[in-house]
C-alpha cells in the first residue's frame, strides 16, 4: 500500500465530499419527488440490507493482510454481535471485538 500521487488523493477527497454532500442535500432540494410511498418504504428496508453487505465486504477486505481472514473475521464478528446484544454498549463491543481479532490475527489465541 503506497500512494505517491497527491493529485489522485486530492481528486478523491473532492469527489467524495461532493457526492456525500449531494446525498445529504437531495432530500431538501427534491422533496416532492422523493416523498413517494414506495421509495420511502424501500428506504426503510435498505439499511439492514446495505449494512449486512458492508459487514461481509469489510470482512473480505481483511484478506489483504490476513490469510485466515474468513475464520478469524467471523469469530471476532460474532463475538462483537454477541457482546452488543448482551451489553448493549457500542463502544465496549467494538473495542473487545477488535482486541479479539488482534489476538486471533497474531495467533495469541487460536482455534
Amino acid at each position: 500500500m503506497f500512494l505517491d500521487n497527491n493529485l489522485y488523493i486530492i481528486y478523491a477527497i473532492i469527489i467524495m465530499s461532493v457526492v456525500t454532500y449531494l446525498t445529504r442535500i437531495i432530500p431538501f432540494a427534491f422533496f416532492q419527488y422523493l416523498n413517494n410511498p414506495i421509495l420511502r418504504q424501500t428506504g426503510k428496508q435498505l439499511p439492514v440490507c446495505l449494512m449486512a453487505i458492508l459487514t461481509l465486504y469489510s470482512i473480505d477486505s481483511l484478506k489483504d493482510f490476513d490469510n485466515h481472514y474468513f475464520i478469524n473475521g467471523w469469530i471476532a464478528c460474532l463475538v462483537t454481535i454477541g457482546l452488543y446484544l448482551g451489553l448493549k454498549s457500542i463502544l465496549t463491543s467494538m473495542v473487545i471485538g477488535t482486541i479479539v481479532y488482534y489476538l486471533l490475527l497474531n495467533k495469541i489465541i487460536a482455534f
Partner: peptide, 18 residues
C-alpha cells in the same frame, strides 16, 4: 492492520440495530 477490524464491528452493530 488489525484496526481494519473496527470497521467490521461498526457495520455488524449497525446491521444488528437496523
Amino acid at each position: 492492520n488489525f484496526l481494519f477490524f473496527s470497521l467490521v464491528t461498526l457495520f455488524a452493530i449497525l446491521t444488528v440495530d437496523a
